[in-house]
Design a protein around this nucleic acid. Structure first.
Lengths: 143, 143
DNA sequence: TAAAATAGTTGTATTATACAATCAATAACT
DNA sequence: AGTTATTGATTGTATAATACAACTATTTTA
């Protein structure tokens, strides 16, 4: 493994992560956390905080608060679980879906601007390598 | 531009950023912010909070606090600027350099583990594409 | 020399997060 | 069946990184 590649990647990753985190905070856009939670609910359907916390790899309390915030905004509804009165299902609402979709489109547009001038192949490769990295990270987590 | 690529990349980027941010928070390692500030001082030499804030694209007050925290730990010294009594130079210390270097090595090791099994070419490409992305982001910021 | 600009610090607020305590409901044990 | 243990969720408290606003002490400018 070449030291140069590792050095370059390390450097680029810190910069990359940092910029994205900060840009997201600044622009008055939907927060990363809300976006990710909504996306989760939209993709995998209603779930309780415990399951969500596991999937998102967050503390239950964190998800509980995030979910409450989304309920406040009417982006999700909190439905009692008839089979277990301790628990609830959080379900994305129509409004939440619209917000999510709008946000997604915004993110896509910004990303497209960033990728202007990239060849189709470069884009494909970038996506593939990021995905591979993520998959490895997931595996390593579940050791 | 293919929608699929954009979608894939968007998804992978959110996951990527999220995981890195959270992993860094959890492991009791030097914080991202401290690492980046130290790296800046190490690479470009002593500077005052204003210049640092500009380079790092942070609010001056944020850098001021970060720098103070590093002074507390003796990772940097705060030297008065003889030519302007309002301002200071923050300079990385020997101890700070050692810490930075140790941290860097740790990060490299973890990254190497993540990149196990990648070909030399894949690594090189990943680094190159991240860099390209970052450079574009920098340009766009300075519009 | 008085007013304006500048470098830095500190107070206050927000967001995302974790851990601990707690509550209510369900499951397990004897 | 009745007591105890476990579980799903919420809420209190704490921390880290950040921004904005108010302020102080200098320096520059008009």
């Amino acid at each position: 493994m070449s030291d140069e590649s590792v050095e370059l990647i390390e450097r680029q990753i810190t910069d990359f992560v940092r910029r994205i985190v900060m840009t997201e905070q600044r622009e008055g856009r939907m927060e990363r956390s809300a976006y990710i939670l909504l996306r989760q609910l939209s993709t995998y359907g209603p779930a309780g905080v415990k399951a969500l916390a596991e999937n998102l790899q967050l503390d239950i309390s964190t998800v509980s608060r995030q979910a409450s915030a989304l309920v406040e905004k009417d982006y999700v509804e909190k439905l009692p679980n008839p089979d277990d009165k301790r628990s609830y299902f959080y379900k994305i609402t129509e409004l939440g879906s619209e917000e999510l979709e709008g946000n997604r489109r915004e993110r896509f547009e910004r990303l497209e601007e960033m990728l202007e001038g990239w060849t189709e192949e470069e884009q494909e490769t970038f996506g593939r390598l990021l995905k591979r990295y993520n998959e490895t990270a997931n595996e390593r987590l579940n050791l």
